[in-house]
């Protein structure tokens, strides 16, 4: 059986909120290392990969591998019933028909119990190769969100170029063009504002802004976002969570000209 208690229901709420517009029906794969999810969007352009490690829960118990097939719209409805300070416990039997969600108030004696019917989801798992990226950029998540939202007003796609000059986000549209360049930057007082660029080779790739704006819905999960780029491979957009957990998005580049 699965029993996973999360001190902050809000964390799970935010994760589901961040991915629900990208993917609809997902398997939450539970085993003794934690709860993982991998799902592609309908058009097979983007891939979501979430890992909530067992250390993120207290207690965490999962005796055998269980795939919880959940519709995220249904999950969102139920998670709305949790208050942000509530403690969340996910429960399921070994061959479950439902997943149970229990919300407990830390301050009062309220206990709310919900269940969601599970779905049989035939999901293909993709093998994500270990990649030595040509450029890795860590930057404030809010800054990345702002850049994507600003540029989508002008164009459908953005080129991300990383060189020794810094990282340049540029777009061209019908009304004109826009570009934002960031250089490495250290803020001693506010390290969450740092921009760190590690580059082993110059990279230049073009991506659909619609997807990037969608990924940025995860901005509330982490102060910083990490962008990993190599020429001609998918972009990795990573939000790190506590206890070595993470929410990652992969986006296939635009190709040709």
């Amino acid at each position: 059986m699965l029993e996973a208690r999360l001190e902050q229901a809000n964390l799970f709420k935010k994760v589901v909120d961040a991915i629900k517009d990208l993917v609809q029906d997902c398997n939450f794969d539970c085993n003794d290392s934690g709860i993982a999810l991998q799902a592609m969007d309908n058009s097979h352009v983007a891939l979501v990969s979430m890992m909530l490690r067992s250390e993120s829960f207290a207690p965490f118990r999962c005796d055998r591998n269980i795939a919880l097939g959940i519709n995220l719209t249904s999950l969102t409805k139920v998670l709305k019933c949790a208050q942000s300070d509530d403690i969340l416990t996910l429960k399921a039997e070994d061959a479950p028909d439902v997943v149970e969600l229990v919300f407990e108030s830390a301050e009062s004696d309220r206990i709310s119990e919900y269940s969601i019917k599970l779905m049989d989801i035939d999901q293909e798992h993709l093998g994500i190769p270990e990649t030595d990226y040509g450029a890795t950029i860590s930057m404030p998540a809010a800054e990345f969100q702002r850049i994507c939202r600003d540029l989508i007003a002008l164009s459908e796609s953005v080129s991300i170029e990383c060189s020794k000059e810094g990282v340049k986000f540029a777009c061209q549209g019908d009304i004109g063009s826009g570009a934002v360049t960031l250089r490495q930057h250290t803020n001693v007082d506010k390290p969450e504002m740092n921009v760190e660029i590690n580059m082993s080779e110059p990279v230049s790739l073009t991506f659909s802004l619609k997807y990037l704006v969608n990924f940025c819905k995860a901005s509330g999960l982490s102060n910083q976002v990490r962008l990993c780029l190599s020429n001609e491979v998918p972009l990795l957009v990573e939000y790190s969570l506590a206890n070595n957990s993470h929410l990652r998005f992969y986006l296939a580049p635009k190709i040709g000209d």
């Binding site: 592609m40 097979h44 352009v45 993709l126 998918p234 992969y250 296939a252 635009k254 190709i255 040709g256």
Partner: peptide, 14 residues
């Protein structure tokens, strides 16, 4: 214009 790549052409099925 540029075409959109498919994530499955980069990450093979397990």
């Amino acid at each position: 214009g540029a075409g959109q790549g498919n994530i499955m052409s980069f990450f093979g099925k397990k």
